[in-house]
Design a binder for these strands. Sequence first.
DNA 1: TGCAACCGAATGAACGTTCGATTGATGAAT
DNA 2: ATTCATCAATCGAACGTTCATTCGGTTGCA
Lengths: 200, 200
Amino acid sequence: MNVRLMNSNEKIAAVLASTLKLIQTNGFHGTPMSKIAQESDVAIGTIYHYFPSKDDLIFALFKHCRALLNDYIFDGIKDDFSYKDSFYHVWRNFVKFYLENGHVFSFFEQFFSSPYYEKNKAEIQEPVGGQNKVVDFLQEGIDRKILKQVNVHLLVASYIGVALSTVHSIKFKDLSFSEQNMEELIGIIWDGAINREKNN
Amino acid sequence: MNVRLMNSNEKIAAVLASTLKLIQTNGFHGTPMSKIAQESDVAIGTIYHYFPSKDDLIFALFKHCRALLNDYIFDGIKDDFSYKDSFYHVWRNFVKFYLENGHVFSFFEQFFSSPYYEKNKAEIQEPVGGQNKVVDFLQEGIDRKILKQVNVHLLVASYIGVALSTVHSIKFKDLSFSEQNMEELIGIIWDGAINREKNN
DNA sequence: TGCAACCGAATGAACGTTCGATTGATGAAT
DNA sequence: ATTCATCAATCGAACGTTCATTCGGTTGCA
């Protein structure tokens, strides 16, 4: 039984999905390989056939999730968007992605705060919860004199930092997700980020 | 040997300090009780005499660190400070505390992102990396019409979120700690948070 | 004398990983 | 068309380690 119910890709996907799900509820270290095998219906030996170790599995899962995030947040930008429109749009997408993918948020939070991340940050190369595309996007705003003339990482910290703590607050019920709250939040960041010397 | 080199309070303090230190470098689950005992020079049995379980120890450590933070961030506010002065001062203290106590930052990051926190959040009762005093302080700014007339938690998310991601960026070398960077950051938050309809 | 503080070897459970066996698809040889 | 060899994919019981916790005993103050 269970013969050819899944091909290799499906097995790998099932393993990643199960790992993500289990980590959300049980945490990094409350998720033994045995449970992953059980949940994904893939034998332990098979998991080790594709991932040399649990660490490799976690690392692969991280890259998988980061790719999902990257694809998501810059999606839906129209040609006629002003810079401000895009600034708002990307930030909303960022928050929406994490709210719609709570298990990814949990996983990232744990991943980034684990010593595991600190060991491998050389290979990872990207800021907090985000990616270089965000850096480039904000740098563009600086170059066009729309945003404050400061080190881009200050703006990245603000842009991403507020998004992450917003998701956190919603998750822990300090805040409710509503259009109005999101508009006011992104308004706070925009007001903080724009160049008041010379803006459109 | 080792007789009465420490009294009970000193032992407890040594255990907490060692746990904090070990967690920073080895992480939550890379810190076995045996290592804590070794590092703190307190026998395993004695640790269990004061803390019923490892979880209780972690929880006590959390409360200890939170108290340290609370004492720190509102320290040094002078009577002649304007609201803006205090807004700046507290935020700087917040960042400074985490930079000066890197092990507390590591510990908090891990603690808040662990399912352990999610289980016990009822007993914990406080926002992200902060405390109710911050909520009260920002609410005061809203009531006095200095800050935007929005839900206080939006401002808390901004205020704390930027501080946390700033510390994170400094820790991971995207950003350097300099007076100028800090001034520009707190300026970004202030510009985002103030009420532009009617402010002093 | 009593009791709290203290100690650390021993226990048992949980976990990551290994490995020898099995299956099934592929394609070369007959 | 059939056989056979090969090898990647699959499986999960078993291994060895690590760890949280226990407990029976010791120490030293009051």
